[in-house]
Deep mutational scan, measured.
Amino acid sequence: GPMASDKRPRTAFTAEQLQRLKAEFQTNRYLTEQRRQSLAQELGLNESQIKIWFQNKRAK
């Protein structure tokens, strides 16, 4: 629909990254900035991508 703007492409996470994020989520529903930074480095992701993933996951 018209609401779907092309400005922010959805990140396609790899299965491996998703597995890691899910495991982290089961341990911590809320990430500290430090955890998020190390996860971002570990997974080669953007911190904001991880932050948003957690927000979306909590919203469900």
Rank of each mutant, 00 (worst) to 15 (best):
R8E: 15
A12H: 09
A4Y: 15
A15I: 09
A59G: 08
S48Y: 13
A15V: 11
K7V: 14
K7L: 14
R36T: 12
D6M: 01
E42P: 00
T11P: 13
Q19Y: 06
D6V: 04
E33D: 13
T11F: 12
A4R: 04
N56A: 14
K7S: 14
L21M: 04
G44Q: 06
R35D: 07
L31A: 04
G44V: 04
R58P: 03
L21I: 03
A40G: 04
F25P: 00
F13P: 05
Q37K: 13
I50Q: 00
Q17S: 03
F25K: 02
A40P: 01
E42N: 04
E33W: 06
Q17N: 03
Y30K: 08
T32Y: 02
P2R: 14
T27N: 11
K57N: 09
K22S: 12
F54E: 02
N46Y: 07
R20C: 05
Y30R: 07
F25G: 01
Q19F: 07
S48I: 12
R20W: 03
Q49G: 03
Q37N: 08
T14N: 06
S5I: 02
T27Q: 12
T14R: 04
T14E: 02
E47D: 05
S38G: 09
M3D: 15
W53T: 00
K51V: 12
G1C: 07
F54Q: 01
L21G: 00
K51Y: 12
Q41S: 08
T14A: 03
Q26D: 07
E16A: 10
K60Q: 10
G1K: 02
K60P: 05
K60D: 10
L45M: 08
T27V: 10
E16Y: 10
Q26W: 06
L45T: 04
E24M: 03
W53Y: 09
Y30S: 07
R35P: 02
Q49C: 11
R29I: 06
R29P: 14
M3Y: 01
T14H: 03
K51I: 14
A59M: 11
K51H: 13
Y30D: 08
S38E: 12
N28G: 06
N56G: 07
R10D: 15
P9K: 07
L18R: 07
N28C: 10
I50W: 01
A15R: 08
R58M: 08
F13M: 08
F54S: 00
R29M: 07
I52H: 10
F54R: 00
T27P: 01
A15Y: 09
A15C: 13
D6I: 04
E24S: 03
E24V: 05
R29K: 09
E24L: 04
R20N: 03
N56D: 11
S5Y: 01
R36W: 06
N46K: 07
G44I: 03
T11V: 12
A15M: 07
E16T: 07
M3H: 15
I52A: 11
N28R: 05
L31R: 01
S5G: 13
K60R: 10
R35Y: 07
R20M: 05
A15E: 11
L21S: 00
D6L: 01
A23Q: 11
R35T: 07
A59W: 12
R8N: 15
Q49I: 14
K22Q: 13
Q34N: 09
F13Y: 07
Y30E: 08
K22G: 09
L18M: 07
E47L: 04
R20E: 02
R29N: 14
F25D: 01
Q41T: 09
L43D: 00
R20F: 04
R10Q: 12
S5H: 03
Q37I: 10
K7P: 15
A40D: 00
G44S: 07
Q37E: 06
E47C: 04
K22T: 14
T32D: 13
N46F: 08
K60T: 09
R20V: 07
Q41M: 10
L45C: 10
M3Q: 15
R58Y: 06
F54Y: 05
S48H: 10
M3T: 15
I52T: 10
R36E: 09
A15N: 09
L39E: 00
A59P: 04
E24G: 01
N46T: 09
Q55K: 13
A12S: 09
E47H: 04
L45N: 00
R8A: 15
Q19W: 06
R58W: 07
W53V: 02
R35I: 05
F13D: 01
K57D: 03
Q55G: 05
G1E: 14
N28W: 03
E16S: 08
T14V: 02
G1T: 03
W53E: 01
R35E: 13
F13W: 07
Q19E: 11
Y30G: 05
A40K: 02
T32I: 02
F13K: 03
D6K: 04
K57W: 09
K57L: 08
E47N: 04
A15D: 12
G44Y: 04
L39R: 00
K60I: 11
Q41D: 08
S48E: 14
R36V: 14
L43P: 00
A4P: 15
L21A: 00
A12D: 08
Q49D: 15
A40L: 01
T14I: 02
Q19S: 10
A40I: 03
G44R: 06
A23Y: 09
R35V: 06
A59Q: 09
P2L: 04
L45A: 04
S38A: 13
S5A: 05
Q26F: 07
K22P: 00
P2E: 15
E42D: 06
R29L: 03
Q26M: 10
G44L: 05
D6A: 05
E33I: 11
S38T: 10
L43G: 00
E47S: 06
G1P: 15
K22D: 12
T11M: 11
Q55N: 07
Q55Y: 13
N28Q: 06
T27L: 12
P2V: 04
R8D: 15
E47G: 05
E16M: 09
L31I: 07
N46S: 11
Q26I: 10
S38D: 12
P9S: 07
R36Y: 11
L31S: 02
F54P: 01
A4C: 15
R10L: 13
E47I: 06
I52E: 14
R58F: 06
F25C: 03
Y30C: 13
P9T: 06
Q55M: 11
S5M: 02
A40C: 05
K57I: 07
R8F: 15
N28I: 04
D6T: 04
E42Y: 04
A15F: 09
K22F: 08
N56Q: 12
L39M: 04
E24C: 03
P9D: 09
T27G: 07
L18K: 06
R36C: 14
Q34L: 09
L31Q: 03
P9N: 07
Q41L: 11
Q49E: 09
R35G: 06
L45W: 01
K57Q: 14
A23K: 09
P9G: 06
Q19A: 14
Q41V: 12
A4F: 15
E24P: 00
L31M: 05
F25S: 02
E47R: 03
I52D: 13
L45V: 09
K60N: 07
F54G: 01
F13E: 02
F13A: 02
A15Q: 12
L45P: 00
S48A: 11
Q26L: 07
L45Y: 01
Y30T: 12
R20G: 05
K51A: 14
T27I: 12
E24R: 01
T14C: 03
G44E: 05
R8M: 15
T32M: 03
I52M: 12
Y30P: 04
K60A: 08
L43K: 00
Y30H: 11
N46R: 10
N28V: 03
D6S: 05
T14S: 06
F25Y: 08
R58G: 06
P2F: 02
L18E: 13
S5N: 09
W53A: 02
P2I: 06
T27A: 09
Q17T: 05
A12M: 09
E47Y: 03
L18D: 05
G1L: 04
E42K: 03
N46P: 14
L43W: 02
F25V: 03
N28L: 04
S48V: 12
Q26C: 11
R10W: 08
M3V: 15
S48F: 12
Q19N: 11
T32F: 02
G44K: 11
K7M: 13
K7Y: 06
L31P: 14
S38R: 11
K57M: 14
N56M: 11
R35N: 07
E16I: 07
D6Y: 00
Q34Y: 09
A23L: 10
M3P: 15
Q41K: 13
Q17D: 03
L18Q: 07
I52R: 10
L31H: 02
